Computed example of a mutant assay.
Amino acid sequence: MTKRRSRRATRETATIAGNLMLAPMVAAMRLPLMASESRGDNPFGIETQRAIAEKNAAIAEGILAAQMSMIQSAWRFWPEVLSGRTPSVLNGVAAERSMNAALKPASRRVKANFKRLARSPQG
C-alpha cells in the first residue's frame, strides 16, 4: 500500500512540476500582450487584470489547500500511532502532501494559461 501511495505521490509531484515548468513560456507569451495594453489610456488592460486576479486566486487557494492538508495529517496522527505506523507528520509525508496541495492551483492555472495563450491569435 505504501508503494502505491508513493508512486501516486511521485506521479502527482511530477505532473505539478511539469506544469510549473511552463511558467516561463506563459510569461514570454503574456508579456507582449501586456506591453501592448499598457500603451493605451488604461495601464491595466484585460490581460494584466487577468494575470493579477489569477495569481491572487492561486495563492489563496494554495494556502488554504496546504492548511487543510496539514489539518488532515494532524487528525490522522493518533490513528496512525495506534495502528503501529509512523505518523505522516513525523516522516515527511504530511509536508509532501501539503506542498503538493499548495502548488496544485498554480500548476493548473499555468497549464490553462499556456493552452489559452498558445491557441490565441495574438499570442
Rank of each mutant, 00 (worst) to 15 (best):
T15L: 06
P24A: 03
E61S: 10
G92Q: 04
P105M: 05
R50M: 09
R39Q: 11
M1K: 02
L90H: 01
R4P: 07
R11M: 11
P79E: 02
T2N: 12
N91W: 08
V110Q: 01
A66R: 04
A65T: 05
A95R: 05
S38Y: 13
G18W: 07
R11S: 12
M21W: 14
A28C: 03
W75F: 11
A35Y: 13
R119D: 12
F77M: 05
N42V: 02
A112G: 02
M29N: 07
I52K: 03
A106K: 05
R5Q: 14
E47F: 13
D41N: 11
P32Y: 08
R30E: 12
E37M: 09
L22C: 00
R85P: 02
G40F: 05
W75G: 00
M29S: 00
T48K: 10
V81L: 09
L33D: 07
K55S: 12
A101W: 01
A102T: 09
V110E: 04
L31V: 15
R76E: 09
V26E: 01
R119K: 14
A95G: 10
F77H: 02
S120M: 10
R5Y: 15
M34C: 08
R119G: 00
N19T: 09
K115S: 10
S6P: 02
R7E: 15
Q67L: 15
R119C: 02
A112F: 05
G123H: 10
K115D: 15
M29E: 08
R119M: 13
N100E: 07
G18N: 04
S88Y: 02
A23D: 00
Q67K: 13
R116W: 00
I59D: 04
F77W: 10
I52M: 10
A27W: 09
I16K: 10
